[in-house]
Amino acid sequence: MSNRHKVIRRPKIVVIGGGTGLSVMLRGLKEKPLDITAIVTVADDGGSSGILRNELQIPPPGDIRNVLMALADAEPLLTDVLQYRFKSVPGLAGHSLGNLMLAAMTDISGDFVTGVRELSRVLAVRGRVLPAADQAIVLKAEMADGSIVTGESMIPKAGQAIRRVFLEPVDVEPLQEAVEAIEQADAILIGPGSLYTSIIPNLIVPKLANAIVDSEAVKLFVCNVMTQPGETDNYSVGDHLEAIYKHIGHHLFDYVIVNDGEIPPQVKSKYAAMGAKAVHLDLDAVTEKGYKVIADRLVLFRTFLRHDAERLSHHIYKLVENWMIRKR
């Protein structure tokens, strides 16, 4: 068969993280011809997720729900219904309907992973959504003064610099499907999201980290636009990368994607009042470590600053496409 008539398969991309930033980015990526697997943190212990986690002994569903919604091909009304959060109903206040549905699917199917798979089918999700592990993980942090803070939701409230985060149990087993997805990936994409409570918790699951290090896929890091109070105060792009390096012991990434678009003064002021500021791009320090930097205007502002999903996904797809061409 001639090269012209060869069927070119969709690149396999594994996206790892959690939180709002991951969901925003996936809304753009699902429009590209990519075979997407999202591996999502299960360390959340706050809000509705924390309650369901404790009462039903299931992994926290919140980040998984957001990723399912982002990748779903369902009618907008259905996704709005699943994101609906009860306000004043006794016993339901604070819970989102999607979280309750994931809990119900887990009960019906017998385990959380199968529940996620079944809800993915109902929502016509483009790709696969996998928890990093099939059990809830307790995240702990050692702070600058040596004290230990327990719980993902408590770490940013400690009011100190974070020295390191670690898991309990330390030898938590990752989902085998997640390891296999990494082993088969053409591209591995990490971020954006809370550095110490959404990104690093996935990377310190031992076998997941080893699979990423061993992979020959192109590895991309999407850096946050703004610092996060209590987690990354005054962090530069290089500081984000250094924190990951200290936890993993490897320079994981080939490319770092960062925003260099101007943020309007009134938006800066709004974030400054919350203790956040734009993440500084220390370009020389980053490139000296061997990272290739892709910088562009990647932000949109509505109520909050968010990544421009369309522009960001364009850069990611072009990087992956070029990598695939070079590999042929």
Rank of each mutant, 00 (worst) to 15 (best):
I155Q: 11
I155S: 10
I155M: 08
I155H: 10
I155R: 10
P156E: 05
P156D: 04
P156N: 04
P156G: 04
K157C: 01
A158G: 01
A158D: 00
A158E: 01
G159N: 03
Q160H: 06
Q160A: 03
Q160E: 05
A161D: 10
A161S: 09
A161C: 00
I162M: 13
I162K: 13
R163W: 01
R163Y: 09
R163I: 01
R164I: 05
R164H: 08
R164C: 05
R164L: 09
V165D: 09
V165Y: 08
F166H: 05
F166D: 07
F166K: 06
L167R: 06
L167A: 09
E168Y: 13
P169F: 12
P169S: 12
P169K: 12
V170Y: 07
D171N: 15
D171H: 15
D171K: 14
D171P: 12
V172K: 14
V172M: 15
V172L: 13
V172G: 15
E173V: 13
E173W: 11
E173T: 15
P174Q: 13
P174H: 13
P174F: 13
P174S: 14
P174D: 13
L175C: 11
L175Y: 12
L175G: 10
L175A: 11
Q176S: 14
Q176P: 05
Q176M: 12
E177L: 01
E177A: 09
E177V: 00
V179Y: 01
V179S: 03
V179A: 02
V179I: 15
E180P: 00
E180I: 03
E180Y: 10
E180Q: 14
E180M: 10
A181N: 06
A181D: 08
A181L: 07
A181C: 05
A181M: 07
I182R: 07
E183Y: 00
E183P: 00
Q184L: 13
Q184N: 14
Q184V: 02
Q184E: 15
A185T: 08
A185D: 09
D186P: 06
D186T: 09
D186C: 08
A187W: 00
A187Y: 00
I188T: 03
I188W: 06
I188L: 11
I188E: 07
I188Y: 05
I188P: 05
I188S: 05
I188F: 05
L189F: 13
L189T: 07
L189S: 09
I190R: 02
G191F: 10
P192I: 11
P192C: 11
G193T: 03
G193W: 04
S194P: 08
L195K: 02
L195H: 02
L195S: 03
L195V: 01
Y196E: 01
Y196K: 02
Y196P: 04
Y196M: 07
T197N: 03
T197E: 02
S198V: 08
S198T: 09
S198H: 07
